[in-house]
Write a protein that binds this DNA or RNA. Structure first.
Length: 315
DNA sequence: AATTCGCCCTGTCGGC
DNA sequence: TGCCGACAGGGCGAAT
């Protein structure tokens, strides 16, 4: 599922070929994917405008045109593909071991392609999303903060310092840590993969209530979040199933994951068997040894946990 | 008010 | 071999 690092990778790849190009035509074929607009209305308003900026906010990618911005949320299986002007429009598919056909390289238009943008130079941007959890909408006038999808969105984890992180931290909350990390009003862009990875790196149990997190662990968590997201970007995203870069090639971060998708396998740090549970309606994998088997309930056990982490820091 | 739950959707996988 | 249910999950709105 495309999270901050995946969307950032896509945006960086689209920036050079798309910036400065004017939009010739646009086609949107799945009405329920469009928010607050229609295919015709969207096409009419964007046609002829020039892309001034390709950017990202949280898990959303956007093209900022002269007047309006076109926003994409990739949902679970959404994919933005760039077809260069000279691209041969052949649809190449490969069959997996189980018979599933997946597009190879920059795919062509198929029944899962729900948006086609054609630019002045003949280059095309395709949006493909088999599970259709993705969303497409316009921010008229380009005023993002006024749009309901962005109004309550939290700060960018890679652009905010520890003080901003601390200000956003709901210290008295009873919610499990995992639920907080998935909450886009806390920090923008973290999804299931990087939430699990950050909690592992920070040595924090995913079901630990927010209010029971020792204060000395807050800088550790802040740093862990930034580390896993930066690593994700460096590796150009995590390809678990559907995610691909705009040229169709996969990201390389999957092999770097410590816990996500590894339930039942040995922890890469301590060799304990990783545990998978459901938390906040999401599959959650953690190491019972590195992240504490059960969240500390009493002051005494809380102190024990803190001492343990303090001791670990010196070893 | 804060938190949890149900739902949307389609392809994949495991069990029988 | 084939059918069918369970599962994957981001974010919104309803329920608690």
């Amino acid at each position: 599922m495309p999270e901050l690092p995946e969307v950032e990778t896509v945006v960086r790849a689209l920036r050079p070929p798309v910036t400065g190009k004017s939009l010739l035509t646009a086609k949107f074929t799945l009405p329920r994917m469009l928010l607050g607009t229609t295919a015709k209305g969207l096409t009419r308003s964007l046609q002829g405008q020039t892309v001034r900026e390709v950017g990202r906010r949280g898990k959303y990618a956007f093209l900022r045109f002269d007047r309006d911005a076109l926003v994409f949320h990739l949902g679970m299986t959404g994919r933005l593909t760039w077809l260069p002007p000279d691209a041969v429009p052949t649809d190449r598919f490969a069959r997996t071991l189980t018979g599933y056909e997946i597009p190879i390289g920059p795919h062509g238009v198929d029944r899962h392609t729900h948006a086609i943008l054609e630019f002045e130079d003949g280059g095309r941007l395709l949006f493909r999303d088999p599970r259709t959890f993705g969303k497409i909408f316009a921010v008229v006038g380009g005023e993002f903060s006024a749009h309901p999808r962005f109004a309550r969105m939290g700060p960018e984890p890679l652009e905010c310092g520890f003080q901003t992180f601390l200000a956003a931290w709901p210290a008295g909350s009873s919610r499990p840590l995992k639920a907080l990390l998935l909450d886009q009003t806390f920090l923008a862009g973290i999804g299931n993969i990087y939430a699990d990875e950050a909690l592992f790196l920070a040595g924090l149990h995913p079901s630990l209530p927010v209010r029971e997190v020792p204060s000395e662990k807050l800088p550790v968590l802040h740093r862990a979040i930034r580390t896993v997201l930066k690593r994700g970007i460096e590796n150009q995203g995590t390809t678990f199933s559907d995610y691909r870069k705009p040229d169709g090639t996969p990201g390389k971060n999957y092999e770097r994951l410590r816990v996500y998708g590894r339930g039942g396998q040995p922890c890469r740090t301590c060799r304990s068997t990783l545990v998978k549970v459901v938390l906040a309606q999401r599959g959650t994998v953690f190491c019972p040894r590195c992240q504490g088997d059960s969240p500390p309930k009493t002051a005494r056990s809380l102190k024990r946990t803190v001492d343990k982490f303090r001791g670990r820091r010196h070893t």
